[in-house]
């Protein structure tokens, strides 16, 4: 059963169409939702939470209809918004316990779950201090903790790496991966940074101008391509000319040569060329596609 399914989902605001007849079906796992700013990602999340009725179309989350079973959906999902949404004058513990109770957890369970989940996101002694004094990374962790505290079946994470430094970004991406694999909670994560999603997602949905551009497994985006990247020390042009003379399609690209693969023979020709010219081979690898190629091609 798909965790999210939408048919003809349309959302028109007075001056803008945020979603335009969107058809999409997503299976359990870590799913990336990609789109430029203003592509309709946040609107889609609000609709899927049953908070915003769509202008047209239907959708279901975890098999529950967004129009009729919004409250049941909100019991089973967690939501981490993009923007700052934490009160500064309470501690992370106090806040996350309160948010657990707002999902119906009895007080002892709320306290226990809050302590557990704050540890999982990596907040320790500092969780007793008021949130106002936290760094951006710590605030992002609290936002993630409140989305997970009631043990949802699915979490919506809206731009979770926004504003984080490279180390914080890596930590957050690793956490997202663990939520999907170790915690067994499906994730719908939005980002406009494609490289990030490639690292953590099983499946990527790309929307542009409210329309579905692609929806496919990350593996199929990043399949190996039919070209080789060759890097040699001091002799790029000589090797290029040598290969060209042998009838190989080759072009320079920065410090490397890009060679079209025409069977096993291409590898032999490169090896022989490097050996004949007495060059030092630094790198020889088959290129992979990136999600980015969808936008640049």
């Amino acid at each position: 059963m798909p965790i999210i399914a939408a048919q003809g989902l349309t959302m028109r605001f007075p001056r803008v169409t945020a979603l335009d007849r969107l058809d999409v079906s997503v299976e359990a796992g870590v799913v990336g939702l990609v789109g430029a700013n203003g592509a309709g990602k946040s609107t889609l999340i609000k609709i899927l939470l049953g908070l915003l009725p769509p202008t047209e179309g239907r959708a279901s989350v975890l098999g529950l209809d967004i129009a009729r079973e919004g409250a049941a959906i909100r019991e089973r999902v967690g939501f981490m918004p993009e923007y700052d949404c934490l009160p500064p004058d309470v501690s992370a513990t106090e806040f996350v316990v309160h948010m657990a109770r707002m999902c119906g957890l009895p007080p002892p369970a709320a306290r226990e779950r809050a302590a557990d989940v704050l540890r999982h996101v990596g907040l320790y002694e500092e969780r007793y201090r008021p949130i106002g004094g936290y760094s951006t990374g710590m605030k992002q962790k609290v936002k993630l903790a409140q989305a997970l505290v009631h043990d949802p079946q699915l979490v919506f994470l809206d731009e979770p790496t926004n504003g984080l430094d490279p180390a914080g970004r890596d930590e957050m991406l690793a956490l997202i991966r663990r939520i999907g694999s170790e915690f067994g909670i499906s994730v719908l994560v939005t980002s406009h940074l494609l490289g990030e999603l490639e690292r953590v997602c099983d499946h990527v949905v790309i929307i542009d101008g409210g329309k579905l551009l692609r929806s496919q497994a990350v593996e199929s985006f990043t399949a190996v391509s039919g070209v080789l990247t060759v890097e040699v020390q001091d002799g790029r042009d000589a090797l290029g000319e040598h290969l060209h003379a042998q009838g190989v399609a080759v072009r320079p690209e920065g410090r490397v040569l890009v060679v079209d693969i025409a069977g096993e023979r291409t590898y032999d020709l490169i090896r022989d060329g490097v050996a004949d010219l007495g060059l030092h081979l630094v790198r020889l690898e088959q290129r992979r596609h990136h999600i980015e190629d969808v936008f640049t091609s």
Binding site: A71, R74, P81, D84, M99, M102, Q146
Partner: peptide, 11 residues
């Protein structure tokens, strides 16, 4: 502090 959406995304 924009906390309200966290409530309404719950039941």
């Amino acid at each position: 502090f924009h906390v309200v959406p966290l409530y309404f995304s719950r039941p």
